[in-house]
Amino acid sequence: MPSPELEIQNLSVAFSSPRGKLIAVNGISFQLNPGETLALVGESGCGKTVSALSILRLLPEPPAKILSGKILFDNQDLLSLNAKALQDLRGNSISMIFQDPMTSLNPVLTVGEQIAETLLRHTTMNRREALQKSADLLNRVELPSPEEKLKYYPHQLSGGMRQRVMIAMALACAPRVLIADEPTTALDVLIQAQILELLESLKKEMSILIITHDLGVVSETAQRVLVMYAGEIVESGPTKALLKDPFHPYTKGLIASIPKLGDKKKPGARLEEISGNVPGLDQRPSGCPFHPRCSWAMETCKTQNPQLRKVESQRQVSCHLEPGSL
């Protein structure tokens, strides 16, 4: 086993609020291996974005506070770095792309200036070289007529084009790790297919952590997947095996509740649903956080939160049930 590119150990993140301390991420650990595409999947409020933002320390602190944990990259703990060292890292060896490219781009700077900014910060290039490289990057992300696009402002581009610009910026310094937070959620399905194809072509060059709520996207991009619920990882494993034969009732419910193309409804048939709602951060259930919605819940589930345990060589699940008994 090669050493992981990025390792998260026992990370907990909380937000201070008038209602007290709200725990958004509750002691998660995972590794991103070299050359791997790993998906972090879950519904809104499960802590997937907070986890991702913590890696690059992008959460505003306060109200956010990292309670515990280590984020190991290049033999150093990112949580112990000072602001300058973090800036040297961001956009250089670890970059990030976000869900909404309109709010993540600066509306008053041209596309060229924004990409060049990254290069000027992290390399020894001069302005002209940086702009030339920016055009190359736009070409790399298949934006038509890149030289001309350098002079565009974000509002002159469509959503899909803006996402390509974001990706070009993220690629500028040839990062080792790319964190993609819902990169296609705001896009139409045809544009989503184009962007996924682009991400696919990047896989060879870097490790990718993709955050999404869409199991279809997971299935088509990631080799391995982590399922999050209420701030915890409830299941992990190789994508194919996990989607085919989920061990956690939540994963199973999520997969079953999606209408799949081709499985035509029978008259009177209903979709399988997970009852209840995702708990708010201030209403965390006791024991296993999923137990109020789980149809297999037992007495133990109400009091004891199961630990994430290894069940097969590459699979982990946190559930009191024996895997395979669903």
Binding site: L190, Q194, L196, G216, K260
Partner: peptide, 25 residues
Amino acid sequence: IALLDAIPSLESERTKNKAPVKGDI
């Protein structure tokens, strides 16, 4: 046809030519 092909599915792996339609609306 393009719309149907573009939907990421749980079963299939990413095959080539999932995005035959280029450009924006």
